[in-house]
Amino acid sequence: MNQSNAPAPGSNEQRAVESYFGELLEHLETLRGRLEGHLPALGEHPESEPLDELVQESIQQLRQRIRLPLSGAGFVAVEDYLADARWHMAWWQGPELARRLLVAMETAGDIYTRREWFSIPITEHRVHIAGPYVDFLCTDDFTLTFTAPVEIAGQVVGVVGFDLLVADFEEPMSRVLAQINPRATVINAHGKVLASASAQLACGARLVRGWEGENLHGHQLSHADGTQQRVDINVLTGLPLALVTPTSGH
């Protein structure tokens, strides 16, 4: 395994993928910015009702602007942020984001504090793309969740985010990748496939085992069918993702 510190070859291609995700993340930033702008007016510890109204308005704006169909969106508060609830999840689902997610919040806190989409933005103060995973709490489907921390006066008060179904995401993304290379693939921090130009490489498949999140040149992949392939792995700027392409000359 060769480590490569030089800028990756073909970074134009990399930028095409980065801008695809960048556009999605801009929508997330807008949503985060709107909440950070309006939340202080609701007081240090808001009541759930005005907060719900604010979140609902904000995600409707998001829904109208974003080009992919969302399967859910909203805000999840950290413990004891709200005045009238220990945990709170203002999350709406369905094609119109009109269906309020009902969760038993006494137990939900224990469940979602363990999830990447909640824990990473809070502990690492950055946006995160969680998944693909089967989300049995919200979408009941194979899902990607984009989340960002909401910070008021330096304190994280919760996360905003949205869910995309793999069914809506995978094929548009693979068309972008197909313009780069017939085997170009985007992987997440766990080395699993988000989308690939190759139709046979399933979303969720483990492509790179034991990957530590670094750029690699000429990394040898062993496929399930016994074939081997050398690839370059380039981390996408500002994203918990990497682009995998066959090493040229192989």
Partner: peptide, 11 residues
């Protein structure tokens, strides 16, 4: 069950 990565199996 959810780690199967199959929504149909999980449901």
């Amino acid at each position: 069950a959810a780690l199967s990565q199959s929504a149909a199996l999980t449901r």
